[in-house]
């Protein structure tokens, strides 16, 4: 049984670098100011796990959590 991943952007930490949107466009959305939030409920569809970790490890503000559920 494989674990399911969920991404979450801390809106207080995000400063709109938009790295997550560039690296994992399926998992993140930007608001009108360019600040990020997770797409939908943040659940990472199978096959996109690497992109979730990549987004986390490229966020300069350490605003992204990847939660293993």
């Amino acid at each position: 049984m494989t674990e399911r991943l969920r991404v979450h952007v801390d809106p207080d930490k995000c400063q709109g670098h938009a790295r997550c949107k560039a690296l994992a466009p399926e998992l993140f959305e930007l608001d009108e100011y360019g600040n990020a939030h997770e797409a939908g409920d943040g659940i990472v569809p199978p096959g996109l796990e690497d992109k979730a970790w990549l987004a986390k490890s490229n966020c300069p503000e350490i605003a992204i959590d990847v939660i293993e559920e």
Partner: peptide, 14 residues
């Protein structure tokens, strides 16, 4: 692959 560079600044003045 991992690059949290600060070329555009960090914090509120990004």
């Amino acid at each position: 692959r991992e690059n949290r560079h600060a070329a555009f600044g960090l914090g509120i003045h990004r």
